[in-house]
Design a protein around this nucleic acid. Structure first.
Lengths: 271, 271
DNA sequence: GTGACCGTTCGTCAAATACAAACACATATG
DNA sequence: CATATGTGTTTGTATTTGACGAACGGTCAC
């Protein structure tokens, strides 16, 4: 009662945050019952019950027997969001063509909140363990150890990259992962110079990927694409050069089409 | 102060509902600025600002310049939800095979909150206007005028079907759409008897679809599948019979595989 | 330079939520 | 067969929390 309320700005609504705590808990637990959730979140049963009832009324949660789960409403909204993304609309068919032409995995990615999100991926004929990679559950992931991520980082404003590193750090994944600021900025410079990025077993041992950015005509990076495959195959000199050309070429095609579509809405260059 | 608060149960949290009002408004408006949203929702600027800031902190909203949009977080959560669905996991490869074998569009659908949701769809070789249909934006839609929807309705408990009709009615879409209770219940009986459902230009003129349900071993309907194509082709007697067999057969294969997977968790038959 | 507009911040009061205890119901347990 | 312990749900009440409107600090247009 005596101490200051320190109502920092922007004021965040605790009730809304708690609602999303419930959403995240339902995801973590793969659905849960009232008491289970109440323990997990350290809230009283009645409170949790009210949150679940509200989320259910909003159709973002379903109840089966006494178990509450997230509903497919998230998928519907999610697909709407993806469809709004011009990079997805333009890039999808091009990525499919790239996968067919190269026979490798092809990816289309973008950045949000400093993390990378796969908008789309296709497996070509040669791609191994197709079910594992294509059906694997998607998460937003660090940008600094994937070919798509590094291509994006290389074309973000420096202060934004700094902010991202401050937020998430540079955690290692394999022994090849770049984990220091200096190394990363050097690498990003290299990527800018040569026009494509390389992920050399930095995320998964045995896997190499080649990426290229897609920017709009104001220089803002919209996302990136990549192909990936086993190092054994990817490192064969002629094949390697050929893949780089295909990737860079596809990125350019997408870029041109995106910029033709975007010509109405005018973004300022930066800020 | 004098009148009753009518705090009906379950008590729904207004702050959470308003947060989802904001989400829906951002979807409707394809992103919006603070003042625009405030007008649209009849709330003060500062209130809207607080909701947006909270949603942004939770990473479900992004801010570009001064425009707020829904983020791809919805897609990530949505893909998680879909992946949790056993019908999707088991059905996806079978649906792909069905599309390849028949050359037509193949669909995998389920029910939620009394509406139908497409979990997956693939276009076969013969499928026309592929980009239109496959890339079209998904919405939860009425069950009574699609082949997948009717196959589901036919295997839900009668009182649930009644509840759905009470909730949403039976709106017409073409002149062939079933719009009366009696007709619908007769149709559902027919579907149960012959084992498959037919959508005969009831949703889109010129389009026919053949559907079949997928139930678990307790008789609960998990969803349904269908193939669709132009009536001209679909109504050729031999081809028609052949398609029915393929659809019913695929549904059975999925059913068997789902029931093998589910054999651990035991649901009671009804309630 | 002035006016209108934007997004953001802040103090204040009414309102909406958290809590705990009680409820109805089921399923074990002595 | 009654008792104890577990659900999910409901309700009354205290108080935290969010809504409001006004004010601030920008930017852009005229």
């Amino acid at each position: 009662m005596a101490d200051e309320h320190t109502t920092g700005s922007p004021r965040t609504l605790k009730t809304v945050s708690r609602a999303f705590d419930v959403v995240r808990a339902l995801e973590e637990l793969d659905g849960a019952r009232v008491t289970e959730l109440a323990n997990h979140l350290d809230l009283s049963k009645s409170v949790v019950y009210n949150y679940l009832s509200t989320l259910r009324a909003e159709k973002f949660v379903v109840k089966e027997e006494d178990t509450y789960r997230l509903s497919l409403q998230f998928l519907l909204v999610g697909e709407y969001v993806r469809y709004q993304n011009i990079l997805y609309r333009i890039g999808k068919p091009e990525i499919e063509e790239l996968a067919e032409k190269t026979g490798e995995y092809a990816h289309l990615a973008t950045e949000q909140h400093g993390l990378g999100i796969n908008l789309y991926k296709v497996s070509g004929e040669k791609a191994v363990g197709s079910d594992y990679q294509v059906n694997k559950l998607q998460r937003a992931d660090y940008l600094h150890f994937s070919a798509t991520g590094k291509a994006i980082l290389a074309h973000l404003p420096k202060e934004r990259v700094e902010w991202i590193i401050d937020q998430y750090g540079l955690p290692g994944k394999t022994e090849a992962t770049i984990t220091t600021r200096e190394e990363l900025f050097e690498e990003l410079e290299t990527i800018r110079d040569r026009g494509y990025s390389l992920n050399d077993e930095e995320e998964i041992k045995g896997l190499q990927a080649i990426g290229a950015p897609v920017t709009n005509r104001h220089g803002r990076v919209l996302g990136s694409i990549s192909v990936s495959g086993p190092v054994r195959r990817m490192k064969q000199p002629d094949y390697h050069e050929q893949l780089i050309e295909s990737v860079v070429n596809t990125a350019n095609v997408i870029e041109v089409n995106v910029n033709m579509e975007e010509s109405d809405d005018d973004f300022p260059t930066f800020s």
